[in-house]
Write a protein that binds this DNA or RNA. Sequence first.
RNA 1: GCCCCGAUAGCCCAAUCGGCAGAGGCAACGGUCUCAAACACCGUCCGGUGUGGGUUCGAAUCCCACUCGGGGCACCA
Length: 959
Amino acid sequence: MSETTPASGAAEAATEPFRYGAALAAEIESRWQDLWEKEGTFNAPNPTGPLADGTSVAAKPHSFIMDMFPYPSGAGLHVGHPLGYIATDVYARYQRMTGHNVLHTLGYDAFGLPAEQYAVQHGVHPRVSTEDNIANMRQQLRRLGLGHDSRRSISTIDPDYYRWTQWIFLQIFNSWYDEDAARARPIAELVAQFESGEREVPGGRAWAELSGVERDEVLGEYRLAYSKEVPVNWCPGLGTVLANEEVTADGRSERGNFPVFKSNLRQWMMRITAYADRLISDLDLLDWPEAIKLQQRNWIGRSEGARVDFGVGDDTVTVFTTRPDTLFGATYMVLAPEHALVDAVVPAEWPAGTRDEWTGGAADPATAVAEYRAAAAAKSDVERQADAKVKTGVFTGAYATNPVSGEQIPVFIADYVLMGYGTGAIMAVPAHDSRDFAFAQAFNLPMRCVVRPTDGRGEDPHTWDDAFDTYDSVLVNSERDGISLDGLSVVDAKARITAWLAEQGIGEGTVNYRLRDWLFSRQRYWGEPFPIVYDETGAMHALPESMLPVEVPEVDDYSPHTYDPDDAASSPKTPLSRNEDWVNVELDLGDGVRTYRRETNTMPNWAGSCWYELRYVDPVNSTSVVDPANEAYWMGPTAEKPAGGVDLYVGGAEHAVLHLLYARFWHKVLHDLGHVSSVEPFHKLFNQGMITADVYRDARGFPVPAAEVVDPEGNGQYFWQGEPVRREAGKMGKSLKNAVAPDEIADEYGADTLRLYEMAMGPLDVSRPWDTRAVVGSYRFLQRLWRNIVSEVTGELVVTDEEPDEATLRALHKAIDGIRGDMAGMRFNTAVAKAIELNNFLVKRGSTPRSVAEQVVLLIAPLAPHIAEELWRRLGHEQSLAFADYPVADPAYVVDETVTCVVQVKGKVKARLEVAPSISDADLEALALADPTVVAAIGGAQVRKVIARAPKLVNIVTG
RNA sequence: GCCCCGAUAGCCCAAUCGGCAGAGGCAACGGUCUCAAACACCGUCCGGUGUGGGUUCGAAUCCCACUCGGGGCACCA
């Protein structure tokens, strides 16, 4: 508890000892927080298991309200951090007061890079610093009076938690995606198919003949978690590989902003691509902001198109295209530099007629290809993107056959074709694709117009400035032998040529996704170890469930192997591999005790957050990840939630494609394997806005402490220590020297004032600037509320026992009606405004009837729970109001007896009439036309039309 | 370059179906209280909705174009 007292407090304490000031607020708040904790007020019972309380909760409506859990950083909280936590708490309290069993808690996401970097910088073990940070954060958050079920608060670094993270990994590892059934199945069922011969083993040999390593390789092509050598994002500056989602558009690490290079490395991957289709289509079942759904759709990037086979010598190269209709316009072909068939198609010498600019100056094709590949590999992603406008590439010396035109077309390699997308090969149609157009111009390649331009540019692409890529036109120059597309629209031509390709057996319609598999291993110490070991032959073994958790070993040297950020030639090393005692382990995996080598990579920090909602549901279950009955109760599908999931999930929009996509993927795997009934983890998603703050910079551009900046003239000329500084909008944070801690505000005004202010600032989903000066407004409101009920001098109740009059009842019930709607719709800013309006009415009224006071206290309780509990107690109630019934409006008092009707003449207001709310349009029109002021306003002009909208408006059109 | 979101009083924001632009708060100004100040209290002031068109009896709200601000994607064939 804080001892801070504002200057005014002490002076007033003598005459107004019961004034609602900082000291009294602090006393009330800590007392109620202690009581809630002692009584377990916010503990939500489960239907079954250790958290069941013997009562039947099945029939009660229930609500699972969740925040995106925090990373326990060492910097401490600023007032922006708890915005979402306050909002969910207000909502959760409202739900509790409307009869719901509410699951609301908060855990900590404590593995990962920042925690490790903090530890390295401070020379403390990550576990120590992380646990300290969690303790600090808990302390700061406790002061806000958040009604959490503390029994359910998990931390991802707790071995009892990550045991299940590892268990889920094993579920995913031991599964494959059955395309026919469109779901994940246990890998054992696939092995059985291989053993029985029901399914042919790739490579054609019998399953029994394969060695352990060979079986690993076969199964690795099916498993949903697999280890494979693939081109990955290697970040020497961080010393680890990164997921695509963690690399920014300009090819740098999202964390640390270091360059990222493509490197072929054996790494753990998650086959999230198997779920691409379901991850898109199930978005339709979710109540999420459209912007987030759109980002996920874009990230998954579904494209419909076709695969087309091109003969290249004796080989076949398959390309993916979204424009099969332009096949007649394909005048060359491009393979990604890493494409597996490049070496096969390269001839010994340049064919006759090879243009000089195609060869890259090399004496023969093999040399040209090797040189180009080397140059491409040395480029970082940053350089590659910077060079995007300048097309580079080199001729392979090979020619492909265009399957419709029969023409021989040159085959190039170029880095604008990516190995990771489609088939890593394209047919180039320079006339109708801007990238192909740029490449064709650079290399003097032929172009053919096959879609008639609609902008008068003519049909000779060589005279064009850019490609013509509009869909809204018809095909030309596209006829040969048995196939003609001429005259067809682009859409119809696509369908025709796709069907024709399928008939010929040289192509088919297909769907392609931008999404890549998820790179799941990191070269860090501070993460979940993989429950995987290797035997002396190198064969992989999953540890049995009984050996979980594989604990993070206690070591002295936990620092990562980092390199010069630009050293692309470096390669990752895992910190755990330094610890031979841990790496080499004697285990009995069923065939006697043998020596195994542990997997030394660790999981990415996303792992722990992929499933924590499930653990909130059943946090101390030691026999299963979550009891099916508890999962079904809190998260199961219902009519309102067709895919099931958490009822409300609040967090920042920055997790749109990372956490939210990964968590959906894991949840779906668990659903397929029968562990959860819900299909999606989060039914309703709400993105809260950011609290911004002004940043003040000095002449050199460095931020100066915002709290010390003055504006002596009040004219926007700011000074810090006498020096002029300039103001700009920015984020709140320590580095910008404008962070305001929630503790500062709580010290000066109390936590209820802070909660109320944050809710009143504006709509929850909009970013808005913090203004410490404005906080006093919320404080004054609570003081007025207090004063309406309790004497500041004696501490006695000042409410009266009179029956409230009609005007008071109308004000009360209108407020109840409005606030209820605002609460349910999470419009907390307008709920606060209505509560202030009602309270101001009572201030003006001069006294507050007890019955009204009680309703007001209940109305404000979700927003300012401490003062509400205190007033409730003082009004004579012995039970906490946490489960009291939220006030319900009496409809008779919500509607006014008379309504002011506006009479307009030609849209201008000319008169006002007091009318009954139930008046009909016809009666209102007659009344308006009879009104003398209106008659005067019409002034004898002809009434052409009268629009009556009872009971609020009549508009008379004359003319 | 493409896509999404936003713009209302000096500031933060209301206006639920297209129907009187104002609910609430901050600041400013005047007053009460005070020896004085702070706190508190009472009261007052303030804009026609970013710009330009359109639809409509009527537009902050719907449509089109533009400006500014925020966000996402960016060689994905």
